[in-house]
Structures are given as C-alpha cells and as structure tokens.
Design a binder for these strands. Structure first.
Length: 404
RNA sequence: GUGAGUGUAGCUCAGUUGGUUAGAGCAUCGGGUUGUGGUUCCGAGGGUCGUGGGUUCGAUUCCCAUCAUUCACCCCA
C-alpha cells in the first residue's frame, strides 16, 4: 500500500469543513481591514529563503525541502509565506512606486522536521503582510485583527509581546550581549554556537542552567533607542485602550532573522508541546535585503492545523434530499428526478432498490432533511413520497411539485 | 538528527505464562412476516496478528532487524 509521506496528511471531513470555515472567515476579516488576496508559488529559488529567513535560522539550516530541478536550478518548497510575498511585491515594482499594499494569503508550507503533535512537514498557514505602513498604529491594528480572528472562532490564547529594536539600537545591544556572553563558559553547546551565529537567540534557550545565567543578561527592552521605546509604549497603550491582554516577554525572539521592532506571538496551552498558534512582527529591512527599495513591512502567520482543532463549530442542521427506489421499476424515475433536482438542491441518490426502512436509515445517517421514495404505489398514482425527517411530516406529491 | 512508546477486523482495543478453527464493542450488510429513520433484538461478512529473519516439534506470543506511526527534545505556525 502506498501511503502519504511522513508528516503529510490528507484533509477530510470534518476537518476539511473546519479548514474552509477557518479560511473563509479569516479572509472576510482581512478584507474588512483592507487586505487583498495574493497567491505566490510554492516553489521558489532557494536563495530567496536563505536571504530572507536567514542562514542562521534552523529553517534554512536544516529544515528546507530543497533540491535541484531538471533545469539545474537550486529550488525550495516554501517553508513560510512572507518571503514569497515580499519577492512578489518587489517583482511588481511596488517598492519603486512607493505604494502601500496589504495582502493576505493561505496555503501549504514545508519544513523537513520530525513530526509530532501540532507539527507537520506539510502544514498550512494563513498570513497577512502590510507594506509601507511605518506607523506604530499599523502594528496595533494587525494585532487587533488577529485577535478578532481568534475571538471569532472562540479560540483561547495568550499574547506575548516584545520589541527587537531597530537598525540603530539593535546592533549596539547585540554587541553588549556578545560581551556579556564572552565570559560565560557554562552555557550549553547550542548557545555557544548561537553566540557566533545569532546571539539574540540564546535568550529563549530552554536549558535551565542557561536561563539562570541569562537572568543577568542585558535585555533588549532596556536598550531601545528613544524612537523604538516611544513606539513600544504607544503600542502598549493602544492595546490597553482596546482591552487586549498581553504579557511582555523580553526574551521573545522570533525564529526568523528578518524581524525588527514589534514582535509578538499568540500561544495556547491546549495543543501539546507546540504552543505557538500565530506569530508575527515588523520587518522593515527585508525588502532591502531582497534588492528592493527600502520599504517597511509588518505581518503575521497562523498555523491552521494547530488552530482548527481548537475551533468550536455549531452542529450542522439537516440539509438536502435523499432519494431511493423501493422497486426496480422506479429506479430510472429516481435517477431522473435527482439529476433535475440537483440544479437547485442538494440531493443524494441511492442507486439500489431497498426497503423503506433501509432508505430512511440511510437518509438519516446522511443527515438529509427530506427522504424521497418511489415504489409501486407511487408509480401507479404518478406521485412521489416525501418525508421531512426533522418534523416527521410525510406526504405524497407529484414530481413537479418536488422540483419547484 | 536524538530519545521513548506503539503496530491484532474499516475504527477503538482485548488476548495468548509459546499449543488445534484469534475475540469484543462500534461501523458495514441482511433480517425481526403487508412500505416508516435517528433508541432495540437476531444474524452475517471481514484478520498473511506491520514486514523479514532467528530460537522451537510448534511463534500472533520470545529474540534480532527493518518499516510505519505516536509523543518528546531541537526548532517553529
């Protein structure tokens, strides 16, 4: 038997219904905020992700679905959504036009990892990206939009917030941190590696002994320049005003290299060891990194699989028709009836003749609202028998009445 | 990549201290005398006991390998 590759799942009912429900409503909300749908290719040049996500990240370091195609191109299945959208933004020359643009997207992402609860090799994200809105109000707006989405689905969460500083204060801070780390020999091997590649990542190391050492480490939040500090203060006050609960996590570091200033993560404790259900932040340098004109950007992405388990969906009401023949002679009529009715109604047809009891059972199992049967009695009188499975009323009517 | 657990019917799982024809519940199909569902009763079909090798008179059971899967680490959505 051939089965799906490790970490790749088929999407079937009822999860497929949840998936559509989730994407449709997130799209609706994003449109209300002025976002437009964008779809970018799943396959991109590998260099795109190396330059945007960053060589120092685990995603690029060991998790990419990367291969050489038949034209000898180094290509990669996208591990996240932002890079492709930014590439498209630049390719369309929106950076040169200097226009504000807001996009939302959803689709599959690929990371070559060992699967576990809430973590797949092929998973799906819903995300948004907003370009050329340097105002801190945009940071707040994007968080409010994300909160609105999660609230709509009744999903519980905690919001964690941090500021990573800008190109002015971040390098200075990084230097300070490296100096601090220089004297520490008791940190774990991973942290020693991070000290050279991406020192800020040591802060969210999960090794206890490391965390004890970092108690005294300089924090980003204490080293922000005045602009970043003011923006962060303003962001907090907007969130307060709109009743968004959050906790400041000075050690929150996003896994992708391109973030600066506002960084946030929505977490849940109901989905196993993987707690992040959505994450995002600002990336004001990314467009430049990818050869565009300097353009600010901010966005977030949600992990759809992690979220749809948490969605509470109302029970689906009985819907549509079930049609079945009680004798062989009626089977052609039932077939014709079903084909015609389907122009306006949902119809499930049973091809085999069965007892009335069997048909009713089937109709009930399929959650149909009406059960339609045709047998010898009906054929003789040129009628069809219809029962409303919800209020149990039954009657015999003509085929035309049923079509209308 | 590392570690631990699990692979017996479509699904959830019993079971065999190694011994004839391997069990249950749910699901499926049929039936409970004339054409009435979501609750019942009866019956039926369906399993190379993950795969390969080893020990043994005999393995689904013990041993080894392998594959798959789950959870966790790492990291992330």
């Amino acid at each position: 038997m051939i089965q799906a590759l490790r970490g790749m799942k088929d999407l079937l009912s009822p999860n497929s219904q949840r998936y559509i429900y989730f994407v449709e409503n997130c799209s609706r909300i994003a449109k209300n905020y002025g976002y437009e749908y964008i779809e970018t290719p799943i396959l991109e040049e590998t260099a795109l992700f190396k330059r945007s996500v960053g060589e120092s990240s685990d995603i690029v370091g060991k998790e990419m679905y990367q291969f050489i195609d038949k034209g000898n191109n180094d290509v990669c299945m996208r591990p996240e959504g932002t890079a492709g959208v930014v590439r498209a933004f630049i390719q369309q020359k929106f950076d040169r036009a200097g226009v504000k643009k807001k996009f939302f997207y959803h689709g599959p992402m690929f990371r070559y990892e060992r699967p576990q609860k809430g973590r797949l090799r092929e998973f799906h994200q819903f995300g948004v990206e907003s370009f050329n809105q340097a105002n801190i109000k945009e940071d707040a707006t994007i968080i409010l939009m994300l909160k609105e989405m999660l609230d709509f689905f009744g999903i519980g969460y905690k919001l964690e917030l941090n500021s990573l500083g800008c190109s002015e204060c971040m390098p200075k801070y990084k230097e300070k941190l490296v100096n601090f780390l220089q004297d520490e020999d008791d940190i774990c091997d991973d942290c020693k590696r991070r000290r050279d590649t991406n020192p800020i990542r040591v802060l969210d190391c999960k090794v206890k002994s490391c965390q004890e050492i970092y108690q005294d480490a300089p924090l980003l939040l204490d080293n922000l320049c005045s602009t970043c500090r003011d923006d962060f203060t303003q962001l907090k006050s907007i969130l307060d005003k709109f009743d968004v609960k959050y906790t400041i996590n000075p050690k929150l570091v996003r896994g992708l290299d391109y973030y600066n200033k506002t960084a946030f993560e929505f977490v849940s404790d109901e989905i196993g060891a993987q707690s992040a259900i959505a994450g995002g932040g600002r990336y004001d340098k990314l467009v430049e990194y990818l050869d565009g004109k300097p353009t600010s950007g901010i966005g977030f992405a949600m992990g759809i699989e992690r979220l749809i388990d948490l969605i509470v969906m109302s029970e689906t009401a009985r819907e549509g028709y079930y049609i079945g023949a009680l004798c062989d002679e009626a089977s052609d009529l039932c077939f014709e009836l079903a084909i015609n009715m389907r122009k306006t109604k949902k119809v499930n047809l049973e091809y085999n003749k069965k007892s009335l009891k069997a048909h009713l059972k089937n109709a009930d199992k399929q959650n149909a609202r009406y059960c339609v049967c045709v047998g010898e009695d009906e054929l003789a009188k040129d009628l069809v028998w219809v029962k409303d499975l919800q209020n149990k009323e039954e009657k015999s009517i003509t085929a035309n009445e049923l079509l209308g």
